[in-house]
């Protein structure tokens, strides 16, 4: 067995790749949310909105296509591996499940526990959202080659169901990261309690920030703060 097949077929190897791709997407999300914050910048009347300039610059970056392809690949690998692992995990309990299950973890860990237990479902909902999201803002480029502009974003998110879906999905992304970031670092083998505490704290803050900031956009557009 080659070393690569071993990594892709063993539970720990799969887990590692899922963690690695997850953390990669975490970095992508940081960049994505930071860039999108330009929506909040006020531009002079008549001038092009900052968001449009940012979008243009971003797409002109050398290697952008490669980066985009990598993100897409990471999404794909992450999703496939996680679903694969989940199926194995489901089977591992056996046919007869417990009549009752309770946690022995201390009360303060219960949130983390819920986040962990709901990761898969959250992830699947995010996947559905992603399809909508890509159709909304990415497919157009295939059709007419134009970039998403602030005007288009505002038009799209003014629609109530989209505003609702986007804000909920954003919070779900945060919830997903709340478990995902610390889990990813653990899976990378990080174990020293000293650093693990920081990672847990930073992970939690980052998860909340990313979730809230993403959600703030559809909300701001819906209430007319961003025009």
């Amino acid at each position: 067995m080659s070393w690569l097949t071993r990594i892709f077929t063993s539970s720990v190897g799969k887990k590692f790749l899922a963690g690695l791709t997850g953390l990669g997407m975490f970095l992508f999300l940081i960049a994505h949310v930071t860039g999108n914050m330009t929506l909040f910048l006020k531009s002079k009347v008549g001038a092009e909105p900052a968001f449009n300039a940012y979008a243009k610059k971003l797409h002109e970056l050398p290697g952008f296509a490669v980066g985009e392809a990598l993100v897409l690949l990471a999404f794909f690998v992450h999703i496939v591996l996680v679903i694969w692992l989940s199926i194995t995990n489901r089977k591992a309990r056996g046919e007869q499940g417990y009549s009752e299950v309770r946690s022995k973890q201390p009360a303060q860990s219960q949130w983390a526990l819920m986040a962990s237990k709901s990761t898969l479902y959250g992830g699947l909902i995010i996947l559905v959202f992603l399809v909508v999201h890509l159709i909304d803002f990415r497919m157009v480029r295939f059709m007419d080659g134009s970039l998403a502009t602030q005007a288009r974003v505002v038009d799209a998110l003014k629609v109530p169901w989209r505003a609702f879906l986007y804000s909920i999905a954003s919070l779900l992304v945060g919830w997903h990261l709340f478990h995902g970031v610390q889990s990813g670092f653990r899976t990378m083998g990080l174990r020293h309690p000293r650093y693990l505490t920081y990672i847990q704290k930073i992970g939690t803050i980052a998860a909340i920030l990313i979730g809230v900031l993403f959600a703030s956009m559809p909300v701001a557009i819906f209430i007319g703060f961003i025009k």
């Binding site: 539970s11 720990v12 799969k14 887990k15 692992l85 194995t88 995990n89 089977k91 591992a92 309990r93 946690s103 022995k104 973890q105 201390p106 860990s109 983390a112 526990l113 962990s116 237990k117 990761t119 478990h179 610390q182 889990s183 653990r186 899976t187 083998g189 990080l190 174990r191 020293h192 309690p193 693990l196």
Partner: peptide, 25 residues
């Protein structure tokens, strides 16, 4: 046919010898 770890840490809470999850990492 055991499952894989999703860093839920319930194992360590149930362990009668309170073995730390750091060993999994």
């Amino acid at each position: 046919g055991f499952g894989s770890c999703t860093n839920t840490l319930e194992c360590s809470a149930a362990c009668p010898k309170e073995i730390s999850p750091k060993w999994i990492q």
